[in-house]
Amino acid sequence: MNDHRTAPATTSEAEEIRLFRERHGLAGLIDVHTHFMPERVLHKVWNYFDTNGPLIGDLEWPITYRQEEAERTALLREFGVRSFTSMLYPHKPGMAAWLNAWAADFARRTPDCLRTATLFPEPGVETYVRAAVEAGARVFKAHVQVGGYDPADELLDGAWGLLADAGIPVVIHCGSGPAPGKHTGPGPVARVLARHPRLRLIVAHMGMPEYEEFAGLAERYGEVRLDTTMAFTDFTERFMPFPPKALPRIAALGDRVLLGTDFPNIPYPYVHQLHALERLELGEEWLRAVCHDNAASLFDL
């Protein structure tokens, strides 16, 4: 078992991941929750973790992969990650369209990145979401906790409808971990899904800590999925453990659970997320689906 305090990745970590893939017959991994954003924005995010911002609380959260952008993309490839995302998000109005332009450029120069976009409840949101979709965005990121907004805000209704019609997945941080926000939890998301039942939401962090409630939404709505980001790791199990009684439900949802990691903003080595999933012992088929096949199908890779 890997301790979350292990030193940053080396060639030996890439070898560990290669052995993991070999054990489970995985030619590669697909990670739907990785962060790439403008460098000055990313450095502000890192500073937030370094200084224990309000949404982090008292957690010690050292950033494991604090390399430059090119080094981070090279590292994912060394780990055998064949496709990844550039999760980015605004914390106030007027940021999303600019972030989407940066993400479009990043995807153009990074062919193995699924072109990512974001949104915020503000006038004009449907216009720039439509523009991003028409320009080739493959996945959106919504961060209810950081943005401090209600996902059921009427300003977002047209954008959700557009994304549902287009079949574009949205990775949404809507659970109340690591600290609750004004509009986190299953209630606001349930209101969105009641209006847009075909919306392809990917609930980040398995909905931590409302794991069971968000599993319930996935059971009710066939297009709702869960990503594994930080779930089941030693770090998260210390303060927001996944309830063992819910594991059979996660096994049954095996075709709608996707690998996510939060790379590079994780306080432990990348391989630990993989080992955390492996030690659940939910079966080879489940593990292969989570680490590759489900995302390959969803994104037609």
Rank of each mutant, 00 (worst) to 15 (best):
Ile30Leu: 13
Glu281Ser: 13
Tyr221Ala: 07
Ala152Trp: 07
Pro93Trp: 10
Leu88Glu: 11
Ala27Pro: 12
Thr73Asp: 07
Pro209Tyr: 01
Glu134Cys: 09
Val189Thr: 13
Gln67Ile: 08
Asp165Gly: 14
Phe140Thr: 02
Thr51Pro: 05
Val125Thr: 15
Asp112His: 15
Gly94Asn: 14
Cys113Pro: 00
Leu287Ala: 04
Leu163Glu: 01
Pro38Ala: 02
Val32Glu: 03
Pro243Gln: 10
Leu287Glu: 02
Ala231Gly: 09
His143Gly: 07
Arg288Ile: 00
Asp3Ile: 06
Tyr149Trp: 12
Ala135Gly: 15
Pro169Tyr: 04
Gly222Asp: 14
Thr6Cys: 12
Ala27Phe: 09
Thr110Arg: 04
Asn47Asp: 11
Tyr65Ser: 14
Glu22Gln: 13
Asp31His: 08
Pro197Cys: 06
Leu253Val: 04
Phe140Asn: 01
Phe235Gln: 03
Phe242Ser: 04
Asp3Asn: 11
Thr118Leu: 04
Asn52Trp: 03
Gly207Asp: 02
Pro264Met: 03
Gly177Tyr: 06
Ala166Tyr: 04
Ala142Cys: 13
Gly25Asp: 10
Ala74Gln: 15
His33Asp: 08
Pro123Asp: 15
Glu237Arg: 11
Thr116Phe: 00
Val170Ser: 06
Ala166Lys: 15
Leu301Gly: 09
Ile266Leu: 15
Asp153Gln: 10
Arg82Leu: 14
Arg225Phe: 01
Glu22Leu: 12
Leu162Asn: 01
Thr233Ala: 06
Arg279Thr: 11
Asn100Arg: 00
His24Phe: 15
Gly216Ser: 10
Leu75Ile: 09
Pro123Phe: 07
Phe239Ile: 12
Val139Pro: 00
Thr228Gly: 01
Pro186Met: 05
Ser297Phe: 07
Gly25Ser: 09
Glu281His: 14
Trp98Ile: 15
His196Gly: 07
Trp98His: 14
Leu26Pro: 04
Ala276Tyr: 02
Glu15Phe: 07
Leu193Gln: 03
Ala9Thr: 07
Thr85Met: 04
Gly260Tyr: 00
Pro267Asp: 06
Leu259Lys: 01
His24Pro: 03
Ala9His: 10
Asn294Thr: 05
Pro243Lys: 11
Arg109Thr: 14
Val189Asn: 00
Arg279Asp: 09
Pro178Ile: 08
Phe232Gln: 01
Ala295Ile: 03
Gly28Ala: 14
Ala215Gly: 08
Val189Trp: 00
Val144Pro: 03
